[in-house]
Design a protein around this nucleic acid. Structure first.
Lengths: 136, 136
DNA sequence: TAGTGCTGGTCTCTTTTTGAGACTTATATA
DNA sequence: TATATAAGTCTCAAAAAGAGACCAGCACTA
C-alpha cells in the first residue's frame, strides 16, 4: 500500500458510506473525522504519541490551552477510544493520560498529515501572503 | 516511503519547529493544521478532490452547511492555497472551485486519514458506547 | 411590463462554543 | 497558620457558527 490516492472515483461515497441512506449529514466517517478536527485534538494526540503525560504536564506543554478545554478535549478523546485515563492514588491524586492501541493506530495517518504540514508550511504561508496582497 | 511512523522521538518538535524559539503557540505546523482542522474543511477538500464544483453544487452536496460557512470555508481554503476560485462570465455569473496542486498534495495524507476513519468508525462507535455506558 | 427564478453571495440576529479566571477539596510543606 | 499542588469545576464574557432574510443583475414568463 503506497501513499497514492487510491480510487479517485468515490471519495464522497467514503464519507457517505455506512449510513446506508444517502444523507451525508449522518455519515460515520464524517462523525469520526469531526471528533478529531478541532483546535486541540491533534496537538494533544501528538503530545501523547510521544509519551504518556499527566494533566498538569500537558497544561504546561501547551500553555495557550485553557484548563477547561484541556479537560474537555481529553474527555472527548477518551470517549472516542483514543486516550486512556488512569488515576493514581497519590496525594493529591495524579492522573495520567496515554494513547490506546486505537489512538496509536489513528496517529499513523495523522502523523502523515503533520509531516506534510511541516514540509509545506512555507508554501501555505506564501499562498496566504499572496492572497492577502491581492485583496488589499 | 511507507506509512510507518518515522522518528517517534521528536513529534512535538515538529509542531514547534520552524519558529526558532520554543513557543509552541506560534508554530507554523500548528498554524497549517489548524487551518484545516475545522468542521467543514476536510469535507469540502474531499468534494473538490473528486472534481471541481460550483458554489451552488457544493451547497446542495452538503445540505447541512450554511451558506455563510460555505463562503467562509472556501475563502479560507483559497487563502491557504488549497483551492482555486474562478468566475465565469455567464449570466448570472457562475463560480467554480477546484483544488490547486498544493491542495491535491495536501489531500494525499488527508485521504489516508479519511480511509482510517472508514476502516475504524466501528471501533470508535463501540468505544463511545462503552464509555457512555459506564458514566451513566 | 410586472412577476419569478437563478446566480453567488452579504447582513443581521440568535445560539453554541470557547476562553479567562476564580473557586474547590484534600494533603503536604514552610 | 499560610501557602502550594493536584486535577478539575463554575461562572461570565467573547468569539464563532447557524438560520434565514436580503441583494444585484439578468433571463424567462405571463
Amino acid at each position: 500500500m503506497d501513499s497514492k490516492i487510491v480510487g479517485l472515483r468515490s471519495k464522497l461515497e467514503i464519507y457517505k458510506a455506512g449510513s446506508g441512506g444517502g444523507n451525508i449529514a449522518d455519515c460515520p466517517v464524517r462523525d469520526v473525522i469531526q471528533g478529531i478536527s478541532n483546535k486541540w485534538s491533534s496537538l494533544l494526540m501528538m503530545a501523547l504519541a510521544e509519551k504518556p503525560y499527566r494533566f498538569g504536564e500537558l497544561r504546561r506543554l501547551v500553555p495557550d490551552i485553557s484548563q477547561r478545554m484541556l479537560t474537555q478535549t481529553l474527555h472527548d478523546l477518551q470517549r472516542d477510544g483514543y486516550v486512556h485515563r488512569e488515576v493514581f492514588p497519590t496525594k493529591p491524586p495524579s492522573v495520567e493520560y496515554s494513547l490506546t492501541d486505537l489512538g496509536r493506530s489513528m496517529f499513523g495517518p495523522l502523523h502523515q498529515l503533520l509531516q506534510w504540514a511541516e514540509l509545506n508550511h512555507g508554501a501555505v504561508r506564501d499562498a496566504r501572503n499572496a492572497f492577502d496582497a491581492t485583496e488589499t
